[in-house]
Write a protein that binds this DNA or RNA. Sequence first.
DNA 1: GTCTATAGGCAGATAGAC
DNA 2: GTCTATCTGCCTATAGAC
Lengths: 195, 195
Amino acid sequence: MARAQAANTDTATRTLDVAERLVQTRGFNGFSYADIAAELGVTKASLHYHFASKTELGRALIERYAERFRERLGQIDAGGAAPPAKLAAYADIYASVLRDRRMCLCGMLAAEYETLPEPIREAILRFFDESETWLADVLEQGEADGSLRLQGSARDEGRAIVSGLEGALLVARPYADVDRFETAAASLLKRLAAA
Amino acid sequence: MARAQAANTDTATRTLDVAERLVQTRGFNGFSYADIAAELGVTKASLHYHFASKTELGRALIERYAERFRERLGQIDAGGAAPPAKLAAYADIYASVLRDRRMCLCGMLAAEYETLPEPIREAILRFFDESETWLADVLEQGEADGSLRLQGSARDEGRAIVSGLEGALLVARPYADVDRFETAAASLLKRLAAA
DNA sequence: GTCTATAGGCAGATAGAC
DNA sequence: GTCTATCTGCCTATAGAC
């Protein structure tokens, strides 16, 4: 993991890549070490060398996913767009997940929440909390500069956006219908546009 | 199943009751025949007598769930309330699911969609289709009588409501926070209220 | 309709050689 | 860091007695 490895091709990273896709498409209870091993052409024992337990693998998965999500939020902030455009860019993160025919990693894990070990549970809640905090900030900016009009508190509107987008992903995926998602997302954001 | 059984206490019915709760809380891949058998105090073999395969059990589960959902929609219609009140009653079906600390059965299965056998997949899509059709009707009534104001088509607004409520359930459940759901649901419906 | 017994497979995980 | 081999336990499902 350290040193000058070929960054994206070491076994640990490739394991995370495959496991991430499997969780996002099949759920944490819908794949096994054997699935990953077969796809990478290694044995299950090798995987256990890098991630001692499935719980540890899951924790690492969320951590990397949240970190990348955080980076994308930082890029949106750095772009300096107006609040409505920031919200659209936020929704487009979700759209890109669906175009990959995946569910949001943490949305999927939220469904399985009751079956998951404690370290994973905590990480899921932190992920949603971060999104909600970032959205609340954007919504407050928009209210301040007059580009957005909120009906409830920034916190509550932020929560409605997160859950609205997660639900749009959840339902659109069985239909394999990106338009279905786009329409729901647009309707979600439209109501915040200033009159 | 037929005859004059004590309606709600025969093994088939009790199996459906327990399995339904397990799917709604843990997912289809998160429980086993052994879990149900232990809770009912019978053996796994007995369960297989009533539901030969887990797939058959799942199909029966959705069928009963959809039928009961259909009945509740019928009751709302029979109540003769105005469209905005009908929407609130619809959202309250979801709230009652969350109060039971459950996810919508079909929302849970939507997450696991890719891992599910074909008969179950079909039943999930039919469930969402029915809700969307019913909602589109209510929304059109509301637009006609002036009690609701739609921004998009009735079909699209209906879809946004279904996915918005499913997402609100999905995210609120890990937080075990009914208020979180209520707030998101209210915000979802408020924007349809006539000016 | 429920039971005992069991088949056959896959799960997550570990020991120890290389 | 990857392998072979193996453990233990659970999974869905079936056969056949009662």
